[in-house]
Amino acid sequence: MNSPVASNESLVSVENVEKVFRRGSEEIHVLRNLDLQVAQGEFLALMGPSGSGKSTLLNLIGGLDRPSRGTLRVAGEDLHDLPDRKMAEWRARHVGFVFQLYNLMPVLNAERNVELPLLLTHLNRAERRQHVAAALDVVALSHRAKHYPRTLSGGEQQRVGIARAIVTDPTLLLCDEPTGDLDRKSGDEILNLLQALNREHGKTIIMVTHDPHASARASRTVYLNKGQLSTEPVI
């Protein structure tokens, strides 16, 4: 597994981070003076009501957006001033995303979807196929490798999404409501899988969720309300 930070260091270090969006002349403070440390190997659940800034925080940690103020250090890299190109390369190397709506390419079969992040590596076709097969094996979908997303169930599509997220062996898995669009049974399968990735493969996972049942699988839960963190649930 990738190990970009010493084991006693935080893999994710968010200090005094603010995120402000502008709508015309109005400033919307989505995150305010936020501090968060996530250790390597941790499975963190991030909960909070809609509009509390969960996805914004996840986007910042995943290098999809930049903080307005504050320090954000992930996997040994200060993300604040990283140029776009470097940021994209950093994401490809360190972050695996799992989305609520799976976000698979409808024109590619499961195997080709999982292969996408590997196109950015120097692996040849045979090596890429090996990695893809291993990732599909982890999510127990080897038998559906040639199937297109439209022929897969929601749970299967999410498993393909997870295979795509782990195929490059990233440092950090960021999951944005990974069970939000699934029934309880499929959701449980996905949570089992994430838990196994955390426990057996040592993956650091940050999962945004609304669902207490899902957050119960995490090793720690933090709550976000009006742009600020707390360890207590929001009433």
């Binding site: 190109r85 994209a88 390369e89 994401r91 490809a92 995303f97 976000n103 992040p117």
Partner: peptide, 16 residues
């Protein structure tokens, strides 16, 4: 648009 965003999230650069 969304799919292109996914590609970028996966690490595809603007040039890609």
């Amino acid at each position: 648009t969304g799919e292109l965003g996914v590609l970028k999230a996966l690490g595809f650069t603007n040039g890609h």
